[in-house]
Design a protein around this nucleic acid. Sequence first.
DNA 1: GTGAAAGCGCTAACAT
DNA 2: ATGTTAGCGCTTTCAC
Lengths: 325, 325
Amino acid sequence: MVVKIDDVARVAGVSKTTVSRVLNNRGYLSEKTIKKVHDAMESLNYQPNAVARQLYKKETKLVGLIFPTVDNPFFGQLVAELEKRLFDSGFKVLIGNSMNDPAKEEMYLKELISNQVDGLIVGAQNRGIDEYHKANLPVVAIDRVMNEDIPVIASDNYMGGKLATELLINSGAKHIMNTDGPINLETPAHRRRDAYEEVMKSHNMVPHTYLVDFSWDIKKKKQAVKEMFAKYPEMDGIFVTNDMDAALVWRTATELGYKVPDDLKIVGYDGANITRVLLPELTTIEQPVEEMAKMAVSTLITRINGEDTPLEQIVPVKIWHGTSV
Amino acid sequence: MVVKIDDVARVAGVSKTTVSRVLNNRGYLSEKTIKKVHDAMESLNYQPNAVARQLYKKETKLVGLIFPTVDNPFFGQLVAELEKRLFDSGFKVLIGNSMNDPAKEEMYLKELISNQVDGLIVGAQNRGIDEYHKANLPVVAIDRVMNEDIPVIASDNYMGGKLATELLINSGAKHIMNTDGPINLETPAHRRRDAYEEVMKSHNMVPHTYLVDFSWDIKKKKQAVKEMFAKYPEMDGIFVTNDMDAALVWRTATELGYKVPDDLKIVGYDGANITRVLLPELTTIEQPVEEMAKMAVSTLITRINGEDTPLEQIVPVKIWHGTSV
DNA sequence: GTGAAAGCGCTAACAT
DNA sequence: ATGTTAGCGCTTTCAC
């Protein structure tokens, strides 16, 4: 049988109210009582039942995280940083990997709400889901447009796209492509593409964006990349919207006999820890993941405390210079 | 105000017991009542409070995961697979990134126990922590020796070490090194080293193991790797105990002017998804992550159901042939 | 300075 | 086929 507050009270020879008081440092307690209670807790190896406390207090100190998957350098690092900061602020983390499946995302959302999380940080995709609204719960989005009243943290996507495209142009590429995710997924990440298109046009070059869906499996992606090479054989530069896809493009290019960067220059986006160890040769736009995590957590906590926060917070990016340009 | 079971009961014109019954499909209900209740739930957008249920049922459908960090190809993939399977079995996941800090691990453990998790899957390091014992909770360890009565899932570390070492020898390397984590961390992963040493000896070669601590930051690791090169300039082959470190060794070797695989052959260990995309050139011993996650989850659930499971389950590894050997 | 009692939202005997 | 009631383990008024 698991020990509960009454057991501690009995052993210490006090009421459970008193035990609760020492547990929470509340009200007047005599030194002697405090000691007795502590001793009893010690000897019984008492662990308070957080669930009972949660029910009464209507506060769980739980935060839900909904992201596509933790099996990705960027999201893995982001979730790790978020978790660290939340833990330091006294929150535990309930996690959901939505795999870009709106149905799954909705299930997670329901479960998390049912579990009475105090707040949510989401990097999953669907803005259509009413629940986010109905939930009436503090929510912070990372790099996703949720709706008008949910604060968003994003890297400076436009600047990133601009830096990437200019880098390619300045290093001599003439036929520069771009990849982007599905356009019906409303995300600030499309601004990378907007920047690409504008920079291209201002240099009198023709922009071409090729769709690569984040949720495709690796085979399908590789297939798509091959098609792209077939369709645009003159391509000599490409700005890929994330590093994993950029690696795939590089790989495929090599297989097809292209030399990087001589025949093809590649710029990615993300620049997470793992990528910089496994593939530092990839020139990429680096998002300040730590900074973003920090902002997301502090914004969420501010909201949980019922205060207002800015609706959009943009953090600067920088170029990681590899050898792929 | 958030809607609760009594509100639904009132609107549906029934007692809350009845609402609870339709919620849980228990007992005899007339079609008509069921419909009324469903309508009421719908119109009120009722979401049951899982915390209240948890308190009564003494079962949370929550599983705790304690791993060093999700910001790593192997653990990221592992956690993603675990979470997926747990979700499919009706469990939500509370996560803790222990960062190889035993103090942090202990804090997580306490929090998770306090939150009444139904079980724990751990890949963190400390076997000394009494709490795992005291917890009296279903626990499954991945690649960690906890203590005699906690089931362990591990890849065939010995076979992996053997395959790696033999591969290096057969491809002509004469001075083969090995890296390993701290020996005081009791983990089945040391069997990789055991195999290395035995294979080396059986070929009349002298084994040398160099310590690289998982918890060092990247600068310190790089420093250590450089020292190793300085100390063993004759090295022409190395079996590195994980892929991230192997990438670092490769990188450092290149900076020092070695050509891989001509001057130095490298074999890693892990072979996770991300690594195979970002650095497929790395020859490595591939752990069957999916299989391990599947086993861990089914073993945990079996334990949660009060049934016995084997104490050690070993899954086979295979070689991923890159170009680094 | 400490205790008795009510109640957080739900489920499950035990009625009827 | 449905309702009444007690209770899960905790916190907090309110009383002394």
